[in-house]
Design a protein around this nucleic acid. Sequence first.
DNA 1: CAGGGTAGTGAGAACGTTCTCGGTAAGCGG
DNA 2: CCGCTTACCGAGAACGTTCTCACTACCCTG
Lengths: 349, 349
Amino acid sequence: MTGNGPSLIDVARAAGVATATAGRALGGYGQVSARTRERVLAAAAELGYRTNGLARSMITGSTQTIGVVVTDVANPFFATALRGITDVTHPAGFEVLLANTGGDLDAERRAITVMSEKRVDGVIVAAAQPGEGAHLKNAIGAGVPVVLIDRLVRGVPEADTVTIDNERAAAEAVAHLLELGHRRIGVITEAGAPVRGPRRRGLFPSAVRLRGYADALREAGIEPDEALIGVARYDRESAYDATLRLLATPEPPTAVLCTDNVLATGAYRAAQDRGLRMPEELSLIGFDDEPWTTLVRPELTVVEQPTYELGTRAGQQLLDRIADGSGTRRPHHVELRAKLVARGSTLPR
Amino acid sequence: MTGNGPSLIDVARAAGVATATAGRALGGYGQVSARTRERVLAAAAELGYRTNGLARSMITGSTQTIGVVVTDVANPFFATALRGITDVTHPAGFEVLLANTGGDLDAERRAITVMSEKRVDGVIVAAAQPGEGAHLKNAIGAGVPVVLIDRLVRGVPEADTVTIDNERAAAEAVAHLLELGHRRIGVITEAGAPVRGPRRRGLFPSAVRLRGYADALREAGIEPDEALIGVARYDRESAYDATLRLLATPEPPTAVLCTDNVLATGAYRAAQDRGLRMPEELSLIGFDDEPWTTLVRPELTVVEQPTYELGTRAGQQLLDRIADGSGTRRPHHVELRAKLVARGSTLPR
DNA sequence: CAGGGTAGTGAGAACGTTCTCGGTAAGCGG
DNA sequence: CCGCTTACCGAGAACGTTCTCACTACCCTG
């Protein structure tokens, strides 16, 4: 790099004061007379001085930077959550260091390590895998506060969490369909989500939603039918295929719930291509509200997640913990509620 | 913050070597015998040592961090561009420091200042205002490489740029409509875009697209009609209103081009609410392809921008300039081409 | 006028690395 | 056995700030 510009020493020399005094004038700490402050500021402006944040951070022990680790910023869900995070943390004087894991656990480990070495004041993590949290536990042990969003991780009880009550959200969607008279209700969900299993930390939203779906059915006296559960990869085409398979079974569902909005686009397209009239021949519910859901015909009924708020709450959570500092603060767990927005794709005729 | 953990000195003491040697063993530079390296590594693992990146960066002069400044990460356009940036820079060992300006020039100035003080190795900027580039010029003068994306800024000739040929893209869209026999072609565009004016740097995409629209019309012997230019704020509702106004004129357009995808959602909705059959009664073209454009009926014809590639190219551009270092590299200007994707909203019956 | 508090300043340590330089021991050719 | 090279390592400087401490005026109080 180039000569890197003038340092505080240069400014002090130019102003005819000690470096300590120049630092006080520019940094806004300690006592400086108005006259010398002005002299120092003038000298700094003259030389084009830029504070070296690295040196400052080494002394103060704070970088005024937080890390944000997500699987994919291009996903509108994480993008808006990220916006929520920055909207809260930026006014508080914090910058955001961003990492994309692409869902790869190793990438997440590396990201956490690098951020930790860069001495971020805390991290907000949307975990890649629910099962492995050793690296997060390490970070916390090293004094880096961790806030988990959207996904809980096993083995990190010290972390704050901000999540959405996915079980309840899915159950409400199912209840809505039951109320409309549906009995054979299908679901399109992401691969790797077990239908049964103990209720505990370390499950992904899609899995939790699937449980909410199953529980709601049982509560209505309907035993969940494996044949009505369509498993897909996390992309539109896969969801499209899964939906077609579901609709081609001997006893096809009269309603389908999608556990994600990407999956919903595939399912919607499948219903269109199959020539099924919605909601008469097939009712459809998506997850996560997006602008397009009111442009399609019929409009799509969705479970609307408070995505932006997820970000703001997580940001606030992290700020609180950073401000606390003592490390004695017990972990907080925020669970936000999603809202069912009924539209044409499920309304009764 | 907590005691901040063991330092290199502690590791060296534990391993019974000098700090310089411990640094060599852990940092992978200089000469170290296999045996001592192992001793140092063992001691480091034992103590739970984390390299202090701040101290390292102070010496090496590189933070392995780049800054990215956009107006809104929640906008899918910037979100995918950002994804492109990280996908290129992360493998090269760079982290991304993100800032949202919300379109505010002062916020952009502050962001650039802070990033510069944090000693990022370079910045990628989607500018808030095309007219003011003094702060960017300053940054470049201070040795911080700048790559502009999507929007050109006046007064910063030293910056690399990666943009999309918006003029040509809009012209192609208009040509498509002319070919279909349309003569009264309207446009919905963002406020603040002059129809005429000299061709020069410092114009925003919407303005450039509007010029492309006007030029294409003139080339076909049609003088652009002010009454066919709908101006809106950058949101769906405003575009909705502007479209309705356009359609309510005495001689309404038979086709409408939107200079942005957010505006397109509003226009599409307006056409629906007005009960206009597309493409028979109104042809519509949007900007930027998104998943929903193939879910609506009719499917939306769009100008597809290479958004992801915009990010990757910008990332590569910045990496190249950082690697160069000499500062003698002449600025590169990459202009990517958009592609018209014809769909049901414009196809002839 | 003595005593004590306070605003302002300077000198130097400290943060935790990497870099520079010099020194020691081992290996090797003659 | 001598001289030369090379691998390895240590001591200390350097990066550019903030923090600690001490010191000097100066003002105020009694």
